[in-house]
C-alpha cells in the first residue's frame, strides 16, 4: 500500500518530457510566451530528476507470494 505515494511523474516521464521541451524550444516556430513556459517547466523537471538521480542506496526487495515486497540485504544471502 506504501507504493501509492508516486503520483509524481516518473523519472522516465520527466526525462522524456525534457527531451520534448528541448526539441520544441530549439524549433523555429515556438512563440516567446510558449518558450518561457517551457523553460520554467523544463527547469522544474531538471531539479526533480536531479533529486531522484542523486539517490545513493540501491533498494533491493523480494517479491512475496501475496504480491507484496520485503527488503532484502543486497550483500546477504
Amino acid at each position: 500500500m506504501s507504493k501509492h505515494e508516486e503520483s509524481e511523474p516518473t523519472l522516465e516521464r520527466r526525462l522524456t518530457r525534457l527531451e520534448e521541451i528541448l526539441s520544441r524550444m530549439e524549433s523555429d516556430d515556438v512563440a516567446l510566451e510558449e518558450a518561457l513556459r517551457l523553460f520554467e517547466e523544463g527547469v522544474g523537471h531538471v531539479r526533480a530528476a536531479e533529486q531522484v538521480l542523486s539517490a545513493t542506496e540501491l533498494r533491493v526487495e523480494e517479491l512475496l507470494a501475496g504480491g507484496g515486497t520485503r527488503p532484502i540485504d543486497p550483500d546477504g544471502a
Binding site: 531522484v52 538521480l53 542523486s54 533498494r59 523480494e62 515486497t69 543486497p74
Partner: peptide
Amino acid sequence: APWVRIVLAG
C-alpha cells in the same frame, strides 16, 4: 543507477 528499485522473484 543507484536510484532504481530492484524486485527479485527468487
